[in-house]
Design a protein around this nucleic acid. Structure first.
Lengths: 252, 252
DNA sequence: GAGTTAGAGTGGTCTGACCTCTTGCAAGGG
DNA sequence: CCCTTGCAAGAGGTCAGACCACTCTAACTC
């Protein structure tokens, strides 16, 4: 109502940058792995200050859309999708997420992922899984190495599922538990048993036995949960409910 | 140097801020809804420049941990957990997520959520669900209002599940489909049928029939998927365009 | 030829000034 | 008395330019 109103340059420079980049990505100009122009140049192009541009880029980097490398340049993320992997632990601390809730989510996701992998996995995935299982058996004396291949095995299953969204979600959940697992695995005494369970899961997936893959995965994860000494207090487990998509998992 | 852990204490002012806030949150000094000190003052406290402080805060805001209100202050997020709700669409565009994949994830999550809600839901949740169902029947002539209560109904189920992690994940997935749904619902002709399905789901949950709740939810979502005219295509193309990247680039 | 170093290019940080928005309060008008 | 109006304090947002830190390359030295 008062004078003012001189000009209306879209406020929120940050969002201006985000929207611009979003447009570049959606119209295909920017693809995973591509480098964006240097900050000074890009800022001049968008007619905003370098610091505002940096705010926007930082925002995108925080979301995992861009990857910044000091002294080299800024790139569009090219690895596996990343949904706030680093943030879940913070969010969790904020809202008081419990470990049993993490496992509940993880079990749901990974069991379904295993079933999907059994249904859709291709040769290359089977080969990658076999490779990781072999590495696990070869790392029985080196817990840290074992854990790495353990993670890779589960990640391969996620890839084999053919659903990158579910894979990204699983990655988010599991990565927030990684620190705890590193400590737990140190004093693990039954890596061989663990490795054999992985091998069985692999075999079920390769044989395209969706129900069995899912069931074995659940068994494996519940054991892992117990190993972390974190059973859910005063509650009996609720088995997974299999839906029509894949043949039933007669788990019980 | 291999991908060791975090970096030195002084490097990366951004992470310095993030870690400081993380500590404040984890030790309970900062709780949801709390306000953090003004930028100028906070920067002085941490002995860094205001711009660096702002970079760090922006990072936290992008992760959904903090909420910034221009002219008012910066607060710790207090609403429902938020895992990159806004970012999934960007990540999706980047990695070419398909709509059927979204639905696959959504169906998995919501069916399990419904089952959990049937198992653990309390009176208050049942009341809230009933309320939303009633509102849906009252909004049959107003698609936009209907959609709002539709979303609220599903959100209530997620709350009733007793697992905030799964609820947050569901929120992330569904929110990225919201825009499309707004357009779809406009020309919807069978809102009454939809409302009745919701009522049935509600009844199953209230009766603690886990299997039926899950089954009805799946039925409901598959119908929604069909309504968006997006059945899974025969096969997706697997053309991957890998270009040269910066030297020394590694992928995980 | 192998190792070292200087430079260019890129992101990271600092400073301090000014702009915009929100809010609360106080002065003025009904 | 109550409501409206307007201002000012305080918060975040933007800007500009200088300088620092890191990487990589290429020319230089031994």
């Amino acid at each position: 109502m008062p004078p003012g109103m001189t000009e209306s340059p879209n406020s929120h420079r940050t969002m201006q940058v985000v929207d611009h980049v979003r447009a570049l990505i959606e119209n295909g100009t920017l693809q995973p792995g591509d480098r964006i122009p240097p900050e000074r140049e890009f800022a001049r192009t968008l007619k905003i200050s370098r610091s505002s541009l940096r705010t926007g880029i930082g925002y995108l980097a925080a979301m995992g859309v861009m990857k910044i490398r000091h002294g080299v340049g800024t790139f569009v993320a090219d690895g596996p999708p990343d949904l706030g992997k680093g943030s879940l632990s913070l969010i969790g601390a904020l809202h008081g997420f419990q470990l049993w809730q993490m496992f509940e989510a993880r079990i749901l996701l990974e069991c379904h992922l295993a079933a999907l992998a059994a249904e859709r996995g291709r040769e290359e995935h089977h080969a990658a899984m076999a490779e990781e299982v072999a590495e696990m058996f070869a790392s029985l004396n080196s817990p840290l190495d074992y854990l790495i291949h353990d993670v890779m095995f589960h990640r391969t299953i996620a890839q084999a599922s053919g659903n990158p969204i579910l894979a990204a979600i699983m990655e988010t959940v599991t990565s927030s538990m990684y620190d705890k697992r590193r400590k737990t695995v140190e004093r693990a005494t039954d890596l061989r048993e663990s490795a054999e369970m992985h091998r069985e899961i692999y075999r079920a997936i390769r044989a395209r036995k969706t129900g069995e893959a899912s069931k074995l995965m659940e068994q494996h994860l519940r054991m892992a949960q117990a190993a972390q000494g974190m059973e859910r207090p005063a509650e009996r487990k609720a088995g997974l409910t299999r839906k029509g998509r894949a043949p039933g998992a007669r788990s019980a």
